[in-house]
Design a protein around this nucleic acid. Structure first.
Length: 416
RNA sequence: GCGGACGUAGCUCAGCUGGUAGAGCGCCAGGUUGUGGUCUUGGAUGUCGCGGGUUCGAGCCCCGUCGUUCGCCCCA
């Protein structure tokens, strides 16, 4: 490899790709605002311990899938693989555990050292929200409803299904997990090789195994419902009725699980069939134990994150590029007037460009290529008479406008 | 980390059983020395991903490598 290429799993956001990307972020930011969420921007890298703590002892992920490095002071730093840990750290270090609840929206790049796949990159981008400091199921329901509203505003709500599950509280989960391990151990020799490994490391993951021979066994496996404590059941009931009130349809899926201990109660994913094996588009859950892991008090919290690349791919249409007005000076004498008009247009909020060189033909070609709505042609003759030729490029019609009326005329034309 | 497919012009792709590389689009210039988008005439463009091997000769065959892609593992 002699020529310079982007690093594996990274990509440039240019043109239509960037407009789709920006549309997702802007839409999410706007809807999050309606729910009272404020945007936070936390660092793109953190002390490695911030993420290591959020991952508990799943040491594979820590060592193999994070972009970690030592800085010159010998400190281990890591490019953030997700947003929640950094937000929780920021909550604690800024003393905001004293002013709860906090409702946070964020958007930005994340980094995971993985094999790239469709919509899954080493540097990718997420939008996400965290509602920290509310233990009521209404908080979960609102957070989920906000996700649904964003998908709806993006025009992709119909392509996705909300799958919902409860993981119960710690007591429920411990009992359930023990029952699962007992069940799968009994049928161990019928499990796929992968799932036999999962039985040791992360038995809940067997529930979302893709192997056909596992699917049959999973169907008869013990489900969390039978192990819920009264409190956990009340929470689960409260969540579902709040979602009904908010008008958010869902499908219960007992296979939705989370591997880490600080997760409890709500777990959900908005999934689509349009992206192959990478069908989860926005996912989250309740993580009442994480803030404490960051050194704060035990604090209830719920949140989700969504991959911008995947959301972008689902967008029906690319948002249109903005259309400027093009100034076309003809001859040297027109230069000064043209530049002054150019700035006057910008000052009144109109996107305006000038071609730097070429004759009228070249500059009009350029105006056409950048999608200009109008070309303003100014030559010696026009200057002498105090006018400009204003050409509507879609229609091809052209008219003479007094120089000092051009800005007002175009402002009116832009409004339609 | 594992398996399959793919890599030829800026883009999308063609290229026969191995015989000195093509199309469309785009780009540039002319038809119009003050008028784009349509039309028309002409033009340029490639280390055939990279490295090695087989061969008189490799875009084509073999090996390696990098990248892309689909799936597995993982999914905070």
């Amino acid at each position: 490899m002699s020529s310079l290429q982007p690093v594996r799993g990274t990509h440039d956001l240019i043109g239509e790709t960037q407009r789709r990307h920006a549309h997702v972020v802007e839409t999410a930011r706007r809807i999050a605002g309606l729910y009272g969420f404020d945007e936070w921007a936390t660092p793109i890298f953190e002390d490695t311990r911030v993420f290591a703590r959020s991952l508990g002892d799943t040491s594979d992920v820590v060592s193999k899938e994070m972009y970690s490095f030592e800085d010159r002071g010998g400190e281990s730093l890591t490019l953030r693989p997700e947003g929640t840990a950094g937000v929780c750290r920021a909550l604690v270090t800024n003393g905001l555990t004293q002013s709860l609840p906090q409702k946070i929206f964020y958007a930005g790049p994340m980094f995971r050292y993985e094999r790239p796949q469709k919509g899954r990159y080493r540097q990718f981008h997420q939008i996400g929200v965290e509602l920290i400091g509310a233990a009521e199921p209404l908080a979960d329901a609102e957070t989920i409803a906000m996700g649904r509203d964003i998908l709806r505003a993006l025009g992709i709500a119909d392509e996705t299904v909300l799958e919902l599950n409860t993981l119960g509280d710690a007591e429920s989960r411990t009992a359930w997990r023990a029952a699962l391990v007992a069940y799968f151990t009994e049928v161990k020799d019928q499990l796929s090789e992968d799932s036999r490994n999962r039985l040791e490391r992360n038995p809940l993951r067997i529930l979302d195994s893709k192997a056909p021979q596992d699917r049959a066994l999973v169907a008869d496996a013990p489900m969390i419902g039978a192990f819920l404590t009264d409190d956990a059941r009340a929470f689960w009931d409260g969540l579902r009725s709040a979602l009904d009130l908010l008008g958010v349809p869902f499908r219960e899926n007992p296979g939705i699980v989370r591997g880490l201990d600080y997760y409890g109660h709500t777990a959900f994913e908005f999934v689509t069939e349009r992206l192959g094996a990478q069908g989860t588009v926005l996912a989250g859950g309740r993580y009442d134990g994480l803030v404490a892991e960051m050194g704060g008090p035990r604090t209830p919290a719920i949140g989700w994150a969504g991959g911008i690349e995947r959301l972008s791919m689902l967008l029906e249409a690319t948002p249109p590029a903005p259309r400027p007005v093009a100034i076309v000076p003809m001859g040297d004498a027109a230069g000064g007037v043209s530049v002054m008009l150019l700035q006057a247009l910008r000052a009144s909020g109109i996107r305006a460009e000038i071609a730097y060189r070429g004759n009228a033909k070249r500059r009009l070609e350029r105006a056409n290529r950048i999608g200009a709505t109008h070309a303003v042609l100014i030559g010696e003759d026009e200057i002498a008479r105090g006018v400009a030729q204003v050409k509507a490029l879609d229609e091809g019609s052209q008219g003479e406008i007094a120089l000092d009326a051009v800005v007002a005329y175009l402002a009116g034309a832009m409004r339609g």
